[in-house]
């Protein structure tokens, strides 16, 4: 698929429409805000979003005002994937089966409390899109550790740095053999847009994991959101890929980063000068982080090696 360019967006009045209305209560430089904006540009107004407790529940507005210009339903923390399931089946019986039904959950609502519902919906191959916007902690409640927080990351519940590693959720979902799994970063909005455009056309369970940096939680200046989102990809910590029917393709910058030597050194990213939350990262933790990053890439390698073998 040819990559959409920003000029194509400008040329098309439909994709120029802003669905996530400005003047909402997201923080300055919010990654979630960007993710909302670009996902909805791709999906259009006939989209129902189910959102469990998260930042997105709050930044979308206090009653009686709301920022999303599309049907949006708040949901209990653990119930999002199941509610989307019900919503899809309900809409089918009401003759609105063509609506995109989305779950829009944070990393806590996906990797922790919501994983049962997510796994259930994925196993049933429900016709929904599950989006996890990953800001690597419970940022809404003020930055507590989630299973998506990186090793060494300081949160209010891991003041000495997190001991364990980030949960590799895209691969867990891929193990459910669903039609589409993708990772995306707000550092590359066009790639994100394209992934939603593609996901929209696929039937069945689709999972998109968006890395959405959080200036107050990660402790970096608001204007650096894009740089942070780019750096996490450039270092190879968060590879961009999509898995369609079990076949993995690396996208964007990650294409070149399969070669370990082309990745930026981890020390540039996991650095207290870069992000305040990494103040506990020392040489030992950096080594462990390197090991963890390599582990993520080994998952990708497994796919690629098998695909190569099958081609031959």
């Amino acid at each position: 698929m040819a990559k959409t360019k920003i000029k194509d967006i400008i040329a098309n009045p439909e994709s120029r429409r802003e669905y996530f209305l400005p003047g909402n209560s997201t923080c300055q430089g919010c990654g979630l805000d960007m993710a909302f904006r670009w996902a909805m540009k791709a999906l259009g107004q006939n989209t129902v979003m189910i959102s469990p407790a998260s930042c997105s529940n709050v930044v979308t507005g206090l009653w009686p005002k709301s920022a999303p210009d599309w049907p949006y339903f708040n949901m209990a923390f653990a119930g999002a994937a199941a509610a989307a399931t019900g919503m899809k089946h309900g809409l089918v019986t009401k003759g609105k089966g063509d609506y995109n039904v989305l779950v829009w959950a944070g990393d806590g609502g996906t990797t922790d409390i919501g994983i049962q519902g997510l796994s259930g919906a994925a196993e049933r191959n429900e016709d929904i899109i599950y989006v996890c916007y990953d800001n690597e902690a419970y940022q809404n409640t003020g930055n507590q550790r989630s299973s998506s927080t990186p090793h060494g990351g300081v949160t209010t519940t891991t003041p000495y740095g997190k001991e364990r590693y980030k949960k590799n959720l895209p691969m867990i979902v891929a193990a459910h053999n669903v039609p589409y799994v993708a990772t995306a970063s707000v550092g590359d909005p066009m790639d994100l847009y394209d992934k939603f455009m593609k996901a929209k056309k696929i039937k069945g369970f689709r999972y998109i994991h968006i890395l959405a940096p959080c200036p107050p939680g990660w402790r970096y200046p608001a204007e650096e959101t894009i740089q942070q989102a780019k750096m996490i990809v450039d270092t190879g910590v968060f590879p961009l890929f999509e898995i369609e029917d079990g076949n993995l393709t690396l996208n964007g910058k990650s294409k070149r980063l399969h070669d370990k030597n082309k990745r930026k050194p981890l020390g540039e990213y996991f650095n207290k000068k870069n992000q305040g939350r990494f103040k506990m990262v020392d040489e030992k933790i950096l080594e462990e982080l390197q090991m963890d990053t390599d582990r993520w890439w080994k998952w990708i390698d497994r796919f690629l090696v098998i695909q190569d073998y099958e081609e031959k």
Binding site: L21, N24, G61, P64, S66
Partner: peptide, 29 residues
């Protein structure tokens, strides 16, 4: 913008309508 004044004219449940500036004039930030 919804402007309810009493218990008796409220709808069944809270329904929010999309509006620019749901958090006010954020330019002031």
């Amino acid at each position: 913008v919804q402007n309810w004044t009493s218990y008796w004219d409220l709808p069944y449940g809270p329904v929010s309508l999309p509006v620019k500036g749901s958090a006010g004039r954020t330019g002031d930030w």
